[in-house]
Design a protein around this nucleic acid. Sequence first.
DNA 1: CAGTAGCCGAGTAAATCAGTCAAGTATTAT
DNA 2: ATAATACTTGACTGATTTACTCGGCTACTG
Lengths: 161, 161
Amino acid sequence: MRLSTKGRYAVTAMMDLAIHDRKGPVTLADISNCQDISLSYLEQLFAKLRKNGLVKGVRGPGGGYRLAKPRSDISIAQIICAVDEKVDATMCSGEENCQKGERCLTHELWMGLSKRIYDFLDSISLEDFLSRPAIQEIIERQDGRRVPARSDGNTMAWADE
Amino acid sequence: MRLSTKGRYAVTAMMDLAIHDRKGPVTLADISNCQDISLSYLEQLFAKLRKNGLVKGVRGPGGGYRLAKPRSDISIAQIICAVDEKVDATMCSGEENCQKGERCLTHELWMGLSKRIYDFLDSISLEDFLSRPAIQEIIERQDGRRVPARSDGNTMAWADE
DNA sequence: CAGTAGCCGAGTAAATCAGTCAAGTATTAT
DNA sequence: ATAATACTTGACTGATTTACTCGGCTACTG
């Protein structure tokens, strides 16, 4: 399992989505604004998240993305694996011929290690993180930056151009 | 903290070093043979490991590398951080102005997450891994591939050229 | 049917990875 | 001392990944 900034972007976006999921679909444009992630990059990430059954796309006006499962059923590990697509940690891809036909030191070492990291990340759900008080504060502050309520009639999407 | 193949190479090499450290300095050429890692790449990794006080270089004939500390005092986390050099997980590098002067969601999220991963990896020492039975087997098998005992008088360094 | 918003693919600059090559310098055995 | 050993340093490279843009398409809603 690889742990890179790519995974962080995905987790952050999923957090944002989880926070606002109750009020209906969330647009990528909103997430892009709030979390400062490029819209097109988000599209790529969400394409993978969708293929892995973590989110559902809702098309048309008023559409956006929704979580495909309850917050508590989505772990950090699932998100990272979805965008990294290379779950495999060993270079011998599961076979044990990595070193001249035999199992290498790395095999035992990294298999065990990455399994434990995976288990750890898999034990943390979106729900777990959202319930932390420090997170709650940030959520409230960021809400100010969000596009005003949709039913308001004026989305102001064009306003700053 | 980043988790990539680079870190794995470093950990594997350190494992190999830890295994044979008792018999005196270990050459990078030996590690290169046993673990199938490019010699020049090992040189780069060990330069960083040395700067971070994890290994000591011993020059001259019969030289090589030694652990700078007891096996039990070297954690997986230390090794990975040494070669990745970017311990920092947030993009705002510890400052909290990542998002237009304020703290971003990522900040809380990833700081907590990467701290827990770090703590986890930091709780595993080289000693811990070496004591595992499955590892012991591999060590014994790999020893056959090693350059014959040094005091033998015939290093055969030129033999296969 | 017009507009919103997801969907898809090609393309790209920059960074990182994994490795090579070449020229050193320090140490030790003889 | 001198040669051999072995670490040290730096420049350089191809491949891959990251993060991102652009352009066009499709499905859906009001």
